[in-house]
Every structure is written in structure tokens, then in C-alpha cells.
Amino acid sequence: MFGRKKDQAPAPQAAPAPDESMDRSKDPRSAKGVPTPSRKAQEEARKRPLVPNDRAAAKVAARDARREEQARMRRALDTGEERFLPIRDKGPQKRYARDFVDARFSLGEYVMFIALAIVVLTVVIPTRNADGSANNTQIYVFGLFWVMVAGVAIDAWLMSRKLKRKLIEKFKSVDQGVVWYGTMRSLQFRRLRLPKPMVKRGEWPS
């Protein structure tokens, strides 16, 4: 009599109420009705390839980058901005060498113009006089040329010795190639030097 009726089914249990904290549709950070993407999906969306898949676009980007770098370098050669100068012109000792050379007068500045004038004279001056005798003027011109070469060499040597002494006084040592760098600059015409001179003649660096 106390037995349970076989045909009586157990009462169905009520389904648990949904956890509103797990309902992504109510997340204020997500759009209405759109589930919030997982962290992995967000990281993948933020990733950008270092090299574009389109090779043509990659070439255009590389060309634009080169042009921008060249433009910065040209501006640095005009303004002396250390950051964008070519490697051969970077460094405090090379900056000092440029200022030292630009502050002085060098015979080597005009060696190319004098050499060109001598070449023109050798073409214009005849080798013989009107009476058929040898014209020695060209000999004198070539002699003047070699005197000029000797003068330029002596001036460059004296300048390099003084530059080296000044570098040691200021920096306690001399980097390799700095003295030669200054010597080669002294052989260039002042207006054509790159980087452009930042000091006037007689404005010696401290």
C-alpha cells in the first residue's frame, strides 16, 4: 500500500535560471546581438604583416622610404644635422675637423681652377714664335703648375699637423681617418663642400 505506483513519472526538475553574467549579448562592450570576440581573435585582428602580400605595393613602399631617407640626408648636408648625416660625416671629431678646415684659407681650394687655367694656356700659347724659334712660355707655365702643386702639398701637410694637435687637445685622442677627412676637405672649393660650411672664415672652433 505504501509502494510507489509504477506508472507515476517523477516530477520534472526546473531548469536552472541562465546566468546573466555569462550572457555575452548583454556585455556593454559588444554590439547588440553580437558576441564579444575572444582575446585571441582580437590579437589576430590587430596583427599586420611586416611585408605586404602585394609585391608591387612592397616595392612602392620601399621606394618611398628610400626617397624620404635621401631627402632627409640632403637636408642634413645643408643644415649639418648630425642625426641624418651620412656615416662618413658623422661624429664630433669630424664636425670639429670640418669647422677647423672651413675657418681657414687653403691653397687647395683653388687647385682645380688653377690647373684648368694652365691647361687652357698650354693650348692657347703656341709652341714656336713667329720667327720659328722655340717658345719657352709653356715651360714656364708647367713650372708654375709644379710650384703650385708643391705649395698645396706643404699647406695641406701643415694644416693636418695642426688639426691633429687640436683634436688631441680637445678629445684626448684622434679617431682613425679624421685627419685625412679634414685634409681632403681642404682640397675642395669652399662653396662645393658637403656638408656645407657652418662657420665663417676666421671663426675657429673652440
Rank of each mutant, 00 (worst) to 15 (best):
R29S: 07
T36M: 07
R46P: 00
A14S: 13
A45W: 00
R4P: 05
V120S: 08
R193V: 02
A117E: 04
D131W: 07
S21Q: 10
R67W: 05
T122K: 12
F142G: 14
A134H: 08
M112L: 14
G182T: 02
R201V: 15
A103L: 03
A58I: 02
P18G: 07
Y110H: 13
E169S: 12
Q13N: 12
R48H: 04
Y96L: 05
V34G: 05
P92Y: 02
R191A: 14
L85I: 04
K166W: 08
W180H: 11
R74K: 15
A156I: 01
L107H: 05
R95V: 09
V141T: 11
E44V: 01
L116P: 06
W146D: 03
K32F: 06
R161G: 08
M1G: 15
L144D: 11
M73V: 04
L194V: 10
L144C: 14
E169P: 04
R190P: 03
S25G: 05
S133Q: 02
K172W: 08
I114E: 12
K170C: 05
E43P: 00
L107V: 01
E82Y: 04
A71D: 06
D131V: 07
R165K: 15
D78P: 02
M1D: 13
I118Y: 13
A117N: 07
S160K: 15
V149E: 00
R161Y: 11
D175N: 11
Q42C: 01
R75V: 12
Y140N: 11
N53S: 14
I114L: 14
M159Q: 13
W180I: 13
K166N: 11
M148S: 12
V51K: 06
L77Q: 07
T183A: 10
Q188I: 10
R83L: 09
K166Q: 15
D19F: 00
F2W: 15
R74M: 13
V123R: 10
N136K: 13
P10R: 10
V119I: 09
R75D: 14
E81C: 03
K200F: 02
F84N: 15
R83M: 13
Y181G: 03
I118W: 08
F2E: 14
E20F: 00
F105P: 05
P35H: 05
M198D: 14
E203F: 00
R185V: 04
N53P: 07
R83Q: 13
W204H: 12
S38G: 06
S21N: 13
A62G: 00
R46F: 01
K94W: 00
I118H: 11
D64I: 06
M148N: 13
S30M: 02
R88T: 14
D102L: 03
M148R: 15
R4E: 08
D102Y: 04
V120Q: 08
W146I: 09
R201C: 01
V60Y: 07
K172C: 09
R190Y: 05
R191C: 04
D27N: 05
A103S: 10
K170V: 12
A58M: 04
P86I: 00
R185C: 01
L77S: 03
Q13S: 13
V34A: 08
M198T: 15
S133A: 04
P52F: 01
E203Q: 11
V111D: 09
P18M: 07
D102P: 00
M148Q: 12
P18H: 08
V124C: 02
E82D: 12
A56I: 08
Q13P: 08
R193Q: 09
A117F: 09
G182E: 03
